[in-house]
Design a protein around this nucleic acid. Structure first.
Lengths: 266, 266
DNA sequence: ATGAGCTAATGGTCTGATGGTTTGCTACTA
DNA sequence: TAGTAGCAAACCATCAGACCATTAGCTCAT
């Protein structure tokens, strides 16, 4: 990455004889064949020619169609799979199936890379606060009866799980995501979802999950639903602020650990 | 190497006599070998045993170390590359190099999947409004002189590009991202980055980019920087609201196209 | 009916070989 | 001496053909 930072990047530094037409020539590299295949597949999926659930031809068929070897096709499939665009099943009737892109899946990839970036749990929490507070007006305005009913169920489940000591961060996350989905905006829902993924993963591994979300948190969930039902933006905002702030404080007092540290169990 | 991978590892698939303890046995699948390698590499990177810039051993060396064939190693490298963890260079002194994960890269993945979800441009714009407005207090509070200087430069560039008719959406995006990065929170920066990815891509293809961002937009950028410099949250918020609202209106009158439709040029 | 066994389809992996690209060195030329 | 052309080595990219493991569906005897 750094070693070649000083390398000749421009095409115009050797051979001082002919030089003025240097930028006439465009790079001729066609790149990797597998990359071309990947791009072609991606296009098909984006254009809707391939929809979730569809099965791609078998590796061997693809070889013939593209006129390449199996290795190349397989590399393309690996890339698509890593990108969460297809799922590969083995055995008869197996093959590559186009997947339904879920926000969960996106969050997964996000979480992976987050553990590698200089991104602390506090950073993520701060972003959450901005976002989850910001959407409250939309939630209060648009939440339907169904939305509220669902939220009630989640709260109930949370409370009873709390009694039996089986309350998990996942349940809290589900609640927050359901709140976000009450905006009826898929982009917002996806983002909240993706944010909870990495938080969950790291917090659970660090075993601060249990004390993090106690009876207070569950009760605040209950209050929030009430505020939404009464279309009381200010109250909802106050509750959510308190709720998230407590998470933030908890994180701060816990040595402000970076996600990476948490991830490695240190 | 593989010959014994298929040996009877699980004692639990024949002998139909015992049956009620079915869930005692965990699935015996070892999965893909390449996946194991990927996981191992990821761990090394996360633990800091491999830092950005490091060069991994050559494919052939890795084959020997892992005791697998080159095909398998290559598939692992493809996955790592697709995940943005390594970069592969050909030729002498080539090989796989650990990359510095940037928020840009992360946002890319998010953007990719955004374009595949049933998500309209309005949805994304609404999410943007929530987020970019929400971070303004943080920006105003934390922007350093360097931040503001950078923003000024971007505004200047925008204005002169406007005169020469070469103003692009990319320039606008760069400005918004730079504003976000003035929060000094990498998570926030990443999110704004990923928002602009899909917007850019689709809007440019649909050729509504040019009229979208006229002199008004560029001037609003200028005003916003002023408000930030004066630490005037309310004014900044007002400007940004107007700025984004205009984008939203423009999108709304433009048949409210979905990102997917735009992507395919329809 | 039920279950055991067969079969074909399909992905997972290995082996060995060839070609292309880049770097660095060397020898030759002006 | 300087510059250049050419060679060699270290890489990745790709191919071709083979074998094994897993799975779904079918058949057939019990």
């Amino acid at each position: 990455m750094e070693g070649d930072a000083g390398m000749p990047v421009g095409p115009s530094d050797r051979t001082p004889s002919v030089r003025n037409n240097a930028d006439l020539f465009s790079p001729v590299s066609v790149g990797r064949i597998s990359e071309v295949i990947v791009e072609q597949m991606r296009l098909l999926i984006r254009e809707g020619k391939l929809v979730p659930g569809d099965r791609l031809p078998s590796e061997r068929s693809l070889c013939e169609r593209f006129g390449v070897s199996r290795v190349t096709v397989r590399e393309a499939l690996r890339v698509l799979e890593a990108g969460g665009l297809v799922e590969i099943r083995v055995g008869a009737r197996g093959g590559a199936f186009v997947t339904q892109p879920s926000s969960e899946r996106i969050g997964e990839g996000l979480a992976q890379l987050m553990t590698l970036t200089a991104m602390t749990a506090s950073d993520v929490t701060e972003a959450r606060m901005v976002f989850e507070l910001g959407i409250l007006p939309l939630v209060v305005e648009r939440a339907t009866e169904d939305d509220i009913a669902d939220l009630r169920v989640l709260v109930e489940q949370g409370l009873s799980a709390l009694e039996s000591g089986s309350y998990t961060m996942a349940m809290s996350a589900a609640f927050h995501v359901r709140v976000a989905s009450s905006t009826h905006n898929p982009a917002i829902e996806m983002l909240v979802h993706s944010f909870h993924g990495p938080m969950l993963m790291s917090l659970q591994q660090a075993q601060v999950a249990a004390p993090l979300m106690g009876p207070r948190g569950a009760h605040e969930h209950f209050e929030l639903v009430e505020a939404i039902e009464q279309r009381d933006v200010e109250r909802a905002r106050a509750i959510m602020t308190r709720h998230l702030q407590r998470t933030a404080d908890r994180l701060a007092e816990d040595r402000d650990p970076s996600l990476a540290d948490l991830g490695s169990g240190q």
